[in-house]
Amino acid sequence: MTVDALVRMANQIAANQSHLSEDEAVAAVAKHLKSFWAYSMQRELLDALAAGTVELDPIALRAVQQLQPA
């Protein structure tokens, strides 16, 4: 997976939750990712974050950190 694409998509999902409070937006983004992203995509983004090779916008970051792909 192109991790840049994952970063872009995660940030875009977060940007479209601007009508929510920060906590609500984080929850909405996390729920969306869990509902629609394959585990491989979740793992890849988590690995890239852990490796420090990518950065996410704050809400997207908090949401992705809630992911626990098997």
Binding site: M1, T2, A5, S35, F36, W37, A38, Y39, S40, M41, P69, A70
Partner: peptide
């Protein structure tokens, strides 16, 4: 029980080799 890949995700994953 976990979602799979959408078409654009399939293409991204193909380019990535997975």
């Amino acid at each position: 029980a976990d979602p799979g890949l959408r078409i654009p995700n399939m293409f991204d994953a193909a380019v990535a080799g997975t």
